[in-house]
Design a protein around this nucleic acid. Sequence first.
DNA 1: TAAGACATTTGCGCCGGCGCAATGATTCCA
DNA 2: TGGAATCATTGCGCCGGCGCAAATGTCTTA
Lengths: 230, 230
Amino acid sequence: MDGRQIPPTAQLFLGLDAVAMDVVAQSASLRRLTRGEELIDQGEEARACFIVLEGRFKVAQLTPEGHQVVLHYVGPGEMLAVAAIFSKTGYPGTATAVQDSAVLEWDRKVMTPLMERFPRIALNALETIGSRFQALQARYRELATERVERRIARAVLRLARQAGKRVKEGVLIDFPVSRQDIAEMTGATLHTVSRTLSAWESEGLIEGGRQRIIIRNPHGLVQIAEELHD
Amino acid sequence: MDGRQIPPTAQLFLGLDAVAMDVVAQSASLRRLTRGEELIDQGEEARACFIVLEGRFKVAQLTPEGHQVVLHYVGPGEMLAVAAIFSKTGYPGTATAVQDSAVLEWDRKVMTPLMERFPRIALNALETIGSRFQALQARYRELATERVERRIARAVLRLARQAGKRVKEGVLIDFPVSRQDIAEMTGATLHTVSRTLSAWESEGLIEGGRQRIIIRNPHGLVQIAEELHD
DNA sequence: TAAGACATTTGCGCCGGCGCAATGATTCCA
DNA sequence: TGGAATCATTGCGCCGGCGCAAATGTCTTA
């Protein structure tokens, strides 16, 4: 079938030999999503796991009260829901395509035996989850100890690192991000984020727009993020 | 040698047959710690991973500015640093014994081949990390969206669930927890925690003491945690 | 191209929880 | 047993950031 080519950057399958790679590729299926479409639904039984081929997904959690929290964004080569397939309580969050995207999909009933046959996959998954765990811990720490402006600076820099694209004015975050999204990433309100970005814009640090951010002065943002100023 | 008995409740080794269990046990070494002693030092090269036999550890992270954040407590049967041994940046946090404790220890150079030989171990690790990841996500969400009183209620209930002991006055949290610890778990200040617990004490919900909390009315706390009141 | 949906900006007022500081209670150890 | 160290309590004042509200800007669809 088409599209079963596994990108060489996929951390989940690093170190596998050609034979294993082939077995893995044979058991995958391709799925395409258009912008806004949901790949994973919070609470649903965790039936499958994924690798992103193209595009980008927003991973978020909804609280019982209806507040949303954005956990992270996942791009090409990265895995989705690989730990969730072991969960008894269903997918812990929602994954929505923020751009037209394509993923490879493995059913849980297929991936578990694959991991048993090729333990390297399980070790790779463990390594990736481990580093995501560390990243989440760091953000937890941030949220617990740091002020809003700094958290917003960090969130913007993180986005730029993940999906920054050089343009003539600076570095563009190359997918639609709203002020609301940043608010949900940082535990702030839409209003505070908007005010903060406006202030930065008038200082020439960034250039804003509808679901667009261009960083004109990355170093200035880093200074805020690392509290080197004032 | 002594003490190489692996507790049957250890999730990391669930589903292993007797032979595998024996190999795993043979490669472990026992270590005892007294209250206050550090098992794992943040930033140090992740040399080994652990399973707790007895006692309890506080896992915390220190910020560059010196603020501490308590991530969770780990008790008997639970694993420590199993994902960290794959990390290139060293242990992400500190683990301190809050009681006299004993752990089994495996060197990274031993555990990785064990996982390759017995993939079940890696799958178990993945499952556990996955559920811890979910728990951390939930706490992140909490921190981002909920008020302090509620977060404190949840933290206290979590401690009670992990280490609650029935006594005649109610449920005692069976290891030393200071107000400062709870503050560092919830992203609040010592002062706010103290005030909140005092208020609860005067409402008869709990009974406080130096590094001691007894929950007299768990249901009342749940009401606060789930915002069923008012 | 007009209308509606969605995103952003900005002003204003308020308050939860922090920061500081001083005091009081327990526990540990010589 | 006394003294130091650690932990807990409480009062007071302030302010960062939220909540509400209204206006303005920008994209989409028919």
